[in-house]
Design a protein around this nucleic acid. Structure first.
Length: 511
RNA sequence: GGCGAGAUAGCAAAAUGGUUAUGCAGCGGAUUGCAAAUCCGCCUAUCCCAGUUCGAUUCUGGGUCUCGCCUCCA
């Protein structure tokens, strides 16, 4: 039985879908005017896990993650770059997909873009106006009248009075009430035609909040199961979404009703205990981090913390995650015949606790074994991935101890649900080899292969070099020339390569 | 100021009214030509003060500190 911490209830609740066996889920995605940072990576990965676990639990999931491709920052950035809005957003949508794919994030079922749903937004604004919740301001903007919507603040726990008391300056003078928010922004003269749509309120473009209400309703219905996003979206964005969606339905179905049953919010990524954000300038883009760390390490790092907890980002923590993940892959490597692998990404369907899912050529997951049962219990408890990961380590210990192929297969199957451990161990353990050898370490005695190596080697060249040196070392070892063997090992260690002598011969991995 | 979340060993991070979290690091042993990896064992903990209880890290109250939201933000 899956339990989800519902922000609306401020408590864990049993997940009961609106339609048995199905789950509709909407997650606020990215505004595409720049590269994604690690905070975005967390949202992507966290809700990828929600998606995967719902599927693994047998639900037919309809996952919608929107793309905001029209907004003030996009317009500003495009103008700065001297490029069209379309070109800018297309570029960063492609970049986002690259980043998400690298992190092993499954594509959502729908990825609607705001610019493609303007008619639906206008329709919703019209209904809000008809319901007396929207008004046209003097300057042409259409605003939402927050005070006319009863229940405003129920998600964020804020009262209108408190908001008013704590309000900070710059009250837009076109609003009847400082708390009102814009549904439709009137077009400004200097803006490009690309950002203007016709409407009964004149040319303009949608406000931010309305897109999620409109696209959510369009793709998932007026009432759906799960809505997610970063904790910073709880207020005002999600609060406003509720006001819009429920306000628009006010006179339908006997007074409308709930827009969303379960609200899920993930915690922030922090740097030095402060929220990573653009405005603070303390952010790292995904692609920058991936230059230094394997994408699976980053994914694993995110999953080692509970999704609602703060996650402090630092190189030391990434190094720690890398070491831990190495232990898992090392265990898999130690078992001679690894089970068949699933292709990473798109095709990988997690095994189902209900028996429906099947791994590539393998057998369905048996959730009754002790490890699997604990894993399932952890995931059912509000997606407790740290606990689930702990089970993985216990399984790894079991694999190392028993060399059991079955245990290794189970380790891999369970990890698959988390989108982890699906690569060939050497691929992870050896990584992209990049060797930089200089000076004395390459001189003379190592033999022909090393004579003229004084520049950096990468990829196949480096691999061949390492393997040639291993052959030489093996020869030296066989001749009991341990000094030479140790020297070669030292050469490689200095280059970031660790040798491991096993019964099957010498293997290597990156340090 | 209003509202909310949190304080767990050297670091990271779960859970729990009494019984091993887990990973990294450290220590001892096994193994190894020496290592690495692995295995076995060990070490270090529940912010402070009261209360409830046979027993609290866990529940209640108070305090201290940290963080977040209240403005675009994942």
């Amino acid at each position: 039985m899956l339990k989800i911490y519902n922000t609306l209830a401020r408590d864990k609740q049993e997940f009961v879908p609106i339609v048995p066996g199905k789950a509709g889920m909407y997650v606020c995605g990215m505004t595409v005017y720049d590269y994604c940072h690690i905070g975005h990576a967390r949202v992507l990965v966290v809700f990828d896990i929600v998606y995967r676990w719902l599927k693994a639990s047998g639900y037919e999931v309809n996952y919608v993650r929107n793309i905001t491709d029209i907004d003030d920052k996009i317009i500003k950035r495009a103008a700065e770059n001297g490029e069209s809005i379309h070109d800018l957003t297309a570029r960063f949508i492609a970049a986002m997909h690259e980043d998400a794919d690298a992190l092993g994030v499954l594509r959502p079922d729908h990825e609607p873009r705001a610019t493609q749903y303007v008619p639906e937004m206008l329709d919703m604004i019209a209904r809000l106006e008809a319901n007396g919740l929207a008004y046209r301001a003097a300057d042409g903007d259409v605003n939402f009248a927050v005070r006319k919507f009863p229940g405003y603040g129920k998600l964020s726990g804020k009262s209108l009075e408190d908001l008013r008391a704590g309000e900070r300056v710059e009250v837009a003078d076109n609003k009847n009430d400082p708390l009102d928010f814009v549904l439709w922004k009137h077009a400004k003269e200097q803006e490009a035609g690309e950002v203007k749509w016709d409407s009964r309120w004149g040319k303009g473009r949608p406000g931010w909040h309305i897109e999620c209400s409109a696209m959510g309703s369009k793709l998932l219905g007026n009432h759906f199961d799960i809505h997610g996003g970063g904790a910073d979206l709880q207020f005002p964005h999600h609060e406003n979404e509720i006001a819009q969606s429920e306000g628009a339905m006010l006179h339908e179905q006997g007074g409308g009703g709930a827009f969303v049953n379960y609200w899920i919010h993930n915690g922030f990524v922090n740097v030095d205990k402060e929220k990573m954000s653009k405005s603070l300038g303390n952010f790292f883009t995904i692609r920058d981090v991936l230059k230094k760390y394997d994408a699976e390490v980053l994914r694993f790092f995110i999953l080692r913390a509970h999704y609602r907890s703060p996650l402090n980002y630092s190189d030391a923590h990434l190094d720690d995650a890398k070491g831990a993940l190495t232990r898992l892959y090392t265990a898999l490597k130690s078992v001679p015949s690894s089970p068949a692998l699933l292709p990473a990404g798109e095709g990988s369907q997690p095994p189902s606790p209900l028996g429906g899912g099947v791994r590539g050529g393998g057998t369905p997951m048996d959730w009754n074994t002790p490890h699997a049962a604990r894993f399932k219990a952890a995931m059912d408890d509000d997606f407790n991935t740290p606990e689930a990961v702990a089970v993985l380590f216990e399984l790894a210990n079991e694999v190392n101890r028993s060399q059991s192929v079955e245990a290794a297969a189970q380790l891999r199957s369970l990890a698959c649900v988390l989108g982890l451990l699906q690569r060939d161990p050497p691929e992870f353990l050896q990584g992209d080899v990049n060797i930089q050898l200089t000076g004395d370490s390459t001189k003379g005695e190592v033999g022909s292969v090393s004579d003229d190596v004084s520049v950096g080697l990468t990829g196949v060249d480096a691999k061949g070099y390492v393997e040639a040196l291993i052959l030489e070392r093996t020869a030296a070892k066989n001749a009991k020339n341990y000094a030479e063997a140790d020297r070669i090992r030292k050469v490689l260690l200095d280059a970031g390569i660790v040798l491991e002598d096993t019964l099957q011969g010498t293997t290597w991995r990156r340090a």
